[in-house]
Simulated scan of single mutants.
Amino acid sequence: MENVSSTEKLESIKSFQSTIRKTEKALAQMNQKSANITLITKRLNALQIGLAILETIWNQSQTPQHYTQTDFVEARNVLASLFPSIESIYAKSKEGSPQRTLLERRIKALQLAIQAIDDLSERNV
């Protein structure tokens, strides 16, 4: 994995944590309304795996043991599927706005998680 600064690591971890909290709140609201939660549950799981793999790599520990290769592949696909909507919102955001900064960090965090999953997959082939 590319050299990532301490600042980028911290921002990426915080971005994932924030996104996970927001997704958990959305899931709770959808549960109360008896809405279909399949998609949001998959997204939440993918975000948790993305966070776990980044924390593991950056803390130089072993791969999170409770996830399978299939879990990583599915998480990678779900994380990659988030880019179009995030990039669309990013394109509409104002230059220098807090929202744009947040979206830049979220995009970077997702890219790093996907790269980490790809690196892990290559080692396990």
Rank of each mutant, 00 (worst) to 15 (best):
Leu112His: 05
Lys22Ile: 05
Glu87Thr: 09
Ile37Pro: 06
Thr41Glu: 15
His66Gln: 14
Ile13Leu: 09
Asn77Met: 10
Val78Gln: 13
Ser12Ile: 02
Glu95Tyr: 12
Val73Pro: 03
Pro98Gly: 05
Ala35Glu: 15
Ile86Cys: 05
Tyr67Cys: 08
Ile86Leu: 11
Lys94Asn: 11
Ser34Cys: 11
Lys108Leu: 13
Met1Arg: 00
Asp119His: 00
Leu79Cys: 09
Ile107Arg: 08
Gln115Ala: 06
Leu47Ser: 04
Leu27Trp: 10
Ala109Arg: 07
Met30Lys: 15
Ser88Tyr: 09
Ser85Lys: 11
Ile117Phe: 05
Ile40Pro: 07
Ile13Gln: 04
Gly50Glu: 08
Ile53Leu: 12
Glu8Leu: 06
Ala46Cys: 07
Gln69Asn: 14
Asn59His: 01
Ile13Trp: 03
Thr7Asp: 12
Ile89Asn: 11
Leu54Phe: 01
Arg21Lys: 12
Phe72Pro: 03
Gln32Ser: 15
Lys108Gly: 02
Asn124Trp: 11
Ser93Val: 06
Leu120Ser: 03
Pro64Ser: 02
Thr68Cys: 13
Lys25Ser: 10
Val78Asn: 08
Lys22Tyr: 07
Glu11Lys: 11
Thr68Ser: 15
Val4Asn: 00
Arg100Thr: 14
Gln99Ser: 14
Ser81Lys: 06
Lys9Ala: 00
Asp119Ser: 07
Leu120Lys: 03
Glu95Cys: 02
Gln99Glu: 15
Ile57Glu: 13
Thr63Phe: 00
Ile37Ala: 15
Glu11Met: 09
Leu39Trp: 02
Leu27His: 10
Gln69Arg: 13
Asp71Ala: 10
Lys33Ser: 15
Ser15Ile: 08
Ile107Leu: 11
Ala113Gln: 07
Asn77Ser: 14
Ala91Pro: 05
Ser18Ile: 04
Arg43Asn: 10
Ile53Pro: 04
Gly50Asp: 02
Asp71Trp: 06
Ile107Gln: 08
Ser5Ile: 10
Ser81Pro: 09
Lys92Glu: 14
Arg106Phe: 06
Glu11Leu: 14
Glu55His: 00
Met30Gln: 15
Thr68Leu: 15
Ser81Val: 02
Gln60Gly: 01
Glu104Met: 08
Arg106Cys: 02
Val73Met: 10
Leu79Gln: 09
Lys33Val: 02
Thr63Arg: 00
Pro84Glu: 05
Ile49Ala: 04
Val78His: 06
Ala109Gln: 05
Gln62Met: 02
Ala35Gln: 15
Leu39Phe: 14
Ala46Gly: 07
Lys25Gly: 06
Lys25Ala: 12
Thr63Met: 00
Ser5Met: 13
Ser121Ile: 13
Ala28Met: 08
Glu87Lys: 12
